[in-house]
Nucleic acid binder design. Structure first.
Length: 580
DNA sequence: GCCGTTTTCGGCCCGACTGTTTTCAGTCG
């Protein structure tokens, strides 16, 4: 699938046009098209072949032609021309906070700066301050920003939600203890539960701004303060993450929360709708344009209400159709954590888990689940103590015994089998057929060519005894990209065979991701299962990350397999269908 | 460059902060 590639090309065009100082609306058009395509829950190539390219909003004649050229020839002449005009190395300058396209272009044309090294050298030699409208302060800020950037390079650019969320909870707990902090709510991409977070936005209501700012200065994990205004304070906390605090008045709390939750695209769309209704939205409230009268602002819900929209859950606020749905009153009722009746992917110390089967089962029971799917590794994964057919048989007997101990709770015997390099499963059919269900996943050979990996996965999907594919794309956030695979083909065969795809809730996996999961359900009608892939009893709590992905994928309770009682799950699994 | 329940042309979200400035452009979110 080339969605991401196309989006990156359009983004690069936009950036190069920005540096050139092109019309800002033209630039915005490229950025908008890039964003649309990156988040598109459909294969752009498929749409192109079906002649539906121009049905995507934001793609008109000019951008459409460039996409067409890329998909047919693999290059975009327009972009290559632009690259000749502006050396791509300049793009590196834009990564430095405080350097935008205008300044980057001036530094390049007036001082010949085209990379970080020459930038740092020029700043140290005091050459930048000699340019008109630039001074020593700019020079100093550039040097500091370069230093900060280099430090940040050590870590990754965007941090996983699984790292950011606990950090935010720590900060919120710390500040909550002060009586003058009356409200403290994380906003931004954290609140939208995006899989990675650029920086953290936290909103505070208080009757004493000075004290809040004072307290922020003594935050234990504080590294340094970037900016401290009367309404905004930006800091860096360990381990190198920016946190923006916004101190707001109670009467504006709802508006501020809405504004800072974003996304940017979502907010722009809302403000456009507001204008058509004679209203203006900003972070302080909703105002009538005619007399500037403030109509609301204290509660977030009021903003959507006054625009004639259903309340839109933060996870959906990406301008991916949620506003149109809300307008028609057709937003989905999103799945919630309480809807999950059982964890669909759990390991024990029979393979590489840290806790015993008994401990894992007992914890699942105590969490209030109705069932748990025990899915240890199979024999081919030697490093993980994968189970042989004999061990599997023993484990089944133990599970049968345990099942007699519990009422209103079922232990399901499964396996996370390996898809071997030829696409076969590392257990014979007579073993596979005895499980309650079988999960299969790729654990090796990620570097095989795209055709080969696609073949392997499809072969596993076609296996009548494989019910669920675990972590279907194999990506590890910030560590390993998804393996090369013909994803639409995977979806097609999953649909054809009734195979379920997993949303793996491990915070570094979140695989399928939100966009893929939405595509699987919305365009192909495939069921998703959510499993924590737990290897110890504490990891059951990670289910919430799977729920976040599902919600961002627009999934309702009924779209997710493990919201159904086991007897109903059976009706949806292909192994039981084929026996009927 | 895209788009249209007032538009096929004339619009295109909103505000804070910073640095260098006597009024504002650039950057950021």
């Amino acid at each position: 699938m080339k969605n991401r590639e196309v989006a990156q090309i359009l983004d690069e065009i936009a950036t190069l046009l920005e540096i050139k100082g092109e019309n800002k609306y033209k630039i915005a058009a490229y950025q908008e098209a890039a964003r649309r395509i990156e988040n598109l829950p459909e294969d752009i190539e498929k749409l192109f072949k079906e002649g539906k390219l121009y049905q995507i909003k934001g793609i008109g004649e000019s951008i459409g032609q460039k996409i067409k050229e890329y998909l047919t020839t693999g290059k975009v002449t327009y972009l290559e021309e632009l690259r000749k005009e502006i050396p791509p190395e300049i793009l590196e300058l834009l990564k430095i906070p405080g350097i935008g396209p205008k300044l980057a272009y001036r530094l390049y044309t007036e001082l010949g700066i085209k990379d970080l090294e020459s930038l740092e050298k020029a700043a140290k030699e005091g050459k930048i301050r000699l340019l008109p409208r630039l001074g020593p302060k700019v020079e100093q800020n550039i040097l500091e920003a370069i230093k900060e950037y280099k430090e940040k390079q050590q870590v990754s650019e965007r941090i996983p939600l699984g790292v950011a969320l606990p950090l935010v909870e720590e900060i919120v707990n710390y500040l909550s203890q002060y009586p003058f902090v009356t409200d403290i709510v994380p906003a931004g991409s954290i609140r939208r539960r995006k899989e990675t977070i650029g920086d953290i936005d936290i909103l505070i209501t208080t009757n004493d701004m000075d004290k809040v700012n004072q307290v922020l200065k003594s935050l234990p994990i504080l590294r340094n303060i970037l900016a401290a205004g009367t309404t905004k304070t930006s800091i860096i906390v360990e381990p190198g993450i920016q946190v923006d605090f916004r101190v707001v008045d109670k009467s504006s709390f709802g508006s501020a929360l809405q504004y800072f939750t974003g996304s940017k695209a979502h907010n722009i769309k809302l403000r456009e709708i507001a204008i058509k209704k004679g209203l203006k939205i900003n972070e302080y409230g909703v105002f009538r344009i005619s007399d500037n009268k403030k109509l609301c602002g204290e509660k977030e819900e009021e903003i959507y209400e006054i625009l004639g929209l259903q309340f839109i859950p933060p996870e959906l606020r990406e301008d991916q159709g949620e506003i149109e749905s809300a307008m028609e009153g057709k937003l989905p009722v999103l799945i919630e954590e309480k809807d999950i009746l059982g964890d669909m992917h759990v390991h024990t110390d029979w393979s590489d888990g840290a806790n015993t089967l008994e401990e894992m089962v007992e914890m699942a029971y105590r969490l209030g689940y109705k069932y748990v799917v025990i899915s240890d590794h199979s024999q081919a994964l030697g490093v993980a103590g994968g189970l042989t057919p004999e061990q599997i048989e023993k484990q089944r007997q133990r599970i049968n015994e345990l099942n007699r101990k519990y009422r209103d709770f079922k232990i399901l015997h499964s396996i996370e089998a390996n898809i071997l390099s030829d696409g076969s499963i590392d257990l014979p059919e007579e073993v596979l057929k005895n499980f309650d269900l079988v999960i299969a996943g790729l654990h090796s050979g990620f570097k095989q060519p795209k055709e080969k990996i696609t073949e392997r996965l499809i072969s596993a999907i076609k296996n009548p005894w494989v019910d669920i594919i675990s972590h279907p794309t194999g990506r590890l956030i910030n560590k390993r990209p998804a393996y090369e695979v013909d994803f639409p083909a995977i979806l097609y065969w999953a649909k054809e065979t009734g195979t379920v795809l997993e949303i793996n809730a491990q915070p570094d996996r979140l695989d399928l991701c939100d966009i893929d999961a939405r595509m699987a359900r919305e365009k192909y009608g495939i069921y998703l299962s959510i499993g924590t892939d737990s290897h110890d009893i504490r990891s059951y709590s990670l289910i919430k990350y799977g729920i976040y992905v599902a919600r961002r994928a627009w999934l309702r309770k009924e779209d997710v397999l493990n919201t159904y009682p086991w007897e109903e799950v059976k009706l949806k699994l292909k192994r039981y269908k084929e026996k009927r």
